[in-house]
Amino acid sequence: MQPFLITAEPLDPAPLVAYVTTPEDGAVVTFAGVARNHFGGRPTASLYYEAYAEMAVPVLVQIADEARSRWKVGRIAVHHRVGKLTIGETAVLVVVAAPHRHEAFEAAEYIMDRIKAIAPIWKQEHWADGEVEWRD
């Protein structure tokens, strides 16, 4: 199991949860970002994600290191999907273990915010009316 991964395959949280879970940590938070059928009141048909592959994984590792420097957390795993996603499919998984839940929740939210801010991954909205638009 690679803790940090960009993949065109469907995402499954189970191996990530198994990876981060250790006897030292009493909290495991799993965040799943899921392809949603609307944005700003406009219906979405599907999403397409693209990554700068050579850079995206090192940036995910960097973001996890940032979280480790801010909270006492254990293992971290982040998988991000690329390619076409239908509504309801998981686009990103952020799984964080920590001794206590507050650190795990806060670190998971921080990691997700940072992914949206600096990870070289882009989302293209395929609107239900047929228009296509990069969300950048």
Binding site: M55, D113, K116, I118, P120, K123, R135, D136
Partner: peptide, 18 residues
């Protein structure tokens, strides 16, 4: 060289310094 826009049009998060 690469130019990287935020993935979803900008961060709403004030404490994550970019």
């Amino acid at each position: 060289v690469a130019f990287i826009p935020p993935v979803s049009g900008g961060t709403e998060d004030a404490n994550a310094a970019v």
